Amino acid sequence: MKATDKGLHIDGIDKKILRFLMEDARTPVLEIARKIGISGAAIHQRLRKLEKSGLLAGSQFRINPKILGYTTMAYIGIFLDKAMSNPAAVKELQKIPEILECHYTTGNWSILIKVLCKDNEHLMQLLNKKIQQIEGVSRTETFISLDQQIDRQISI
């Protein structure tokens, strides 16, 4: 691994390590070392360098929201009355726990958010009582996800 003018260059061993960890972040380092054919210490050293470079942004467990009763995923385009409302609106959106992602966008909407709700009624309450009540929000456009077909990271 080395830094270049065009970004970070990772070698074949780094890519193999990353692929193992992207598949299962709980894979033991010694197991990865054995499969790749290098020492566990070398794996640890490479992982430290990858973390220091900023390429690795930690590891996490994924919670299955359906087990907790959250079955409605939606994307909501938010129209703001003026561009100056963006920072204040985002500050208010951060207070809403059902919002998983928030993006400034080009195109029709000022902001696009991804929300997770228990059901359609919960989504309607979220829209009517929280999101559309934020000062500066003029209207919203909602798209309900019927089923997620692809969930992946960038290929290494």
Rank of each mutant, 00 (worst) to 15 (best):
A74P: 09
I134N: 01
E141D: 14
Q133A: 11
E23R: 07
K49L: 12
Q125S: 11
P87D: 02
F143G: 09
E31P: 06
T105D: 01
A3K: 15
L116M: 09
K15F: 09
L146D: 09
I10V: 13
Q125R: 11
A83L: 09
Q133T: 12
Q125V: 12
T27M: 02
V115Q: 02
S145Q: 13
M22C: 05
K52D: 11
V115G: 00
S110Q: 04
E101G: 00
K52A: 07
I154N: 08
E23Y: 11
K35P: 08
R139I: 07
I38P: 01
C117S: 02
P87M: 02
Q60H: 14
I113Y: 04
Q132N: 15
G107A: 04
I113P: 00
K6C: 03
L112V: 12
D11V: 03
P28V: 05
I113R: 05
R139S: 14
Q153S: 12
A57I: 14
L127D: 01
I76A: 01
Q149M: 13
L127E: 10
L18P: 03
E98R: 11
K82Q: 10
T142R: 03
H122K: 07
F61Q: 03
Q149I: 14
C117P: 01
V137D: 08
V29Y: 10
A33H: 02
I96S: 00
K52S: 07
I111Y: 08
I10H: 03
E121Q: 07
N64F: 09
T27Q: 01
V137Y: 06
T4K: 05
I96N: 00
T140N: 09
G12A: 15
N86P: 11
K66M: 15
I32K: 07
S145F: 10
L80A: 07
S59V: 13
Q148E: 13
N108V: 12
I96C: 00
S110A: 06
H103D: 02
S59P: 07
R46K: 01
K66Y: 11
L116N: 02
L55K: 12
E121W: 07
G37C: 07
I36V: 14
L18W: 06
I67N: 03
L126V: 12
I63C: 08
D5V: 03
L116P: 01
I17D: 00
K6V: 10
I154V: 08
L100H: 04
F79S: 12
K35F: 02
K35M: 12
I10N: 07
